[in-house]
Design a protein around this nucleic acid. Structure first.
Lengths: 220, 220
DNA sequence: TAGATTGTTAATCGATTAACAATC
DNA sequence: TAGATTGTTAATCGATTAACAATC
């Protein structure tokens, strides 16, 4: 399935979710077909880029016609595995963990939350969304029994250092990392997506005070 | 001040916060000097890149010695304006808004939260962190009196469309945007940093299922 | 068929890496 | 001084854009 897909650069991969969003919107507006030119205009990119990006995965369009919105969305859904349910745990149910757990529709993006953990006795046992928070001491046993593949880390850096190593031992293969710990540096081969909100905020600060560059920054 | 700085690409700008983080850590470890080679090793990048990046802003090192950690951190702090206090408002005190408000140290990153707003009567009047949530209907008056420069949007797309236009009218020049609305497309010239957590999660899904690419993705 | 638009190759542009002379 | 390491130029690499033949 992924065998007939060429080598794809990260630049392309990072644009896929944006295509997914725009195509979802088009579908909900009952748009049936769209040309790369028109989509490019809506998204603020070039038509060339869209055609190049999509052709990394296959020829989803038709000459003289363009792309069928539903078909293209379906293809990108498949490429992104958004209909999958990768067993996922969340660790650290503080402000950020709670927000992520209740705010993000994991099920619509290829993940299924099967457990939430914290070390604070005041949080353990409480219900967040549809989950009862368990103590992080029970994590190892939980992993042996339930084999989570993905972990969302909403914990401080120090905790992330030891926990990520333990989780990798126990079979976790991908991290959605809100901590400041650079998991990938010490664990090559593990899949990591970092969410560095502080970095994003500092970038905003730079752009606010150096507006010359902002033009290039907006479409990102 | 920013006049003696060359044109800087977004690729470089986005790396600055990471330098800031690593240098802060080095300083807290009482490391006095560091060479580009050693820093590169710690960060998992090339020494060439570090020297190129820093030289966009000036020659902060010394041949034969390397970089003084404190001096370099100070320079990057200045470039990022982290000691500034740009007057900032937050709109939408739901799960995500509350987490951002209580979790992110805005004051350490160049911003100062001067107001929080929501449209729900059950939230208006409550205290979050050190702020009392005001009704979004009072926003226009608030802007006229307090002139916020930056707005953090933790609201749904539809609300973001109208509110961002109004805020720009009222003098807001930069947005930290958690919504799915593409502000920059309709308001060129305004500074925007998007935080698309859903996109990040979908990228993780892609990488989980196409691990070939992951090598290049980790250091990001 | 004629017109439109893709898929794909070639050209351009920009970013990263390598190399090295300058110099502390 | 000799050794180390920067600042900076040149070479490489990759990503974006332009062009156009294929074809629906």
């Amino acid at each position: 399935m992924s065998d007939n897909e060429k080598a794809v650069s990260m630049a392309v991969v990072r644009r896929l979710p944006r295509y997914y969003r725009f195509l979802s919107e088009l579908l909900s507006e009952n748009v049936v077909r769209i040309s790369s030119r028109e989509l490019a205009q809506r998204m603020g990119v070039t038509a060339s880029q869209i055609r190049q990006d999509l052709n990394c995965f296959g020829g989803f369009g038709q000459q003289g016609y363009g792309y069928n919105v539903a078909v293209l969305l379906e293809e990108i859904s498949r490429i992104l595995y958004v209909k999958d349910s990768a067993p996922t745990i969340l660790i650290g149910v503080g402000n950020m963990g709670r927000a992520v757990l209740t705010h993000l529709p994991f099920e619509l993006r290829g993940f299924s939350i099967i457990g939430a953990f914290d070390k604070s006795q005041s949080i353990v046992g409480s219900r967040v969304g549809s989950h009862t928070v368990a103590h992080v001491d029970t994590l190892h046993d939980f992993c042996l029994r339930n084999k989570p593949l993905v972990a969302v880390l909403c914990i401080p850096k120090e905790a992330a250092v030891t926990l990520s190593a333990q989780l990798i031992e126990d079979g976790v293969r991908a991290f959605w990392n809100f901590s400041h710990y650079d998991i990938a540096l010490n664990h090559p081969g593990v899949v990591v997506q970092n969410v560095h909100l502080g970095d994003s905020l500092m970038t905003l600060s730079y752009l606010l005070h150096h507006p010359e560059n902002s033009g290039s920054a907006e479409r990102e």
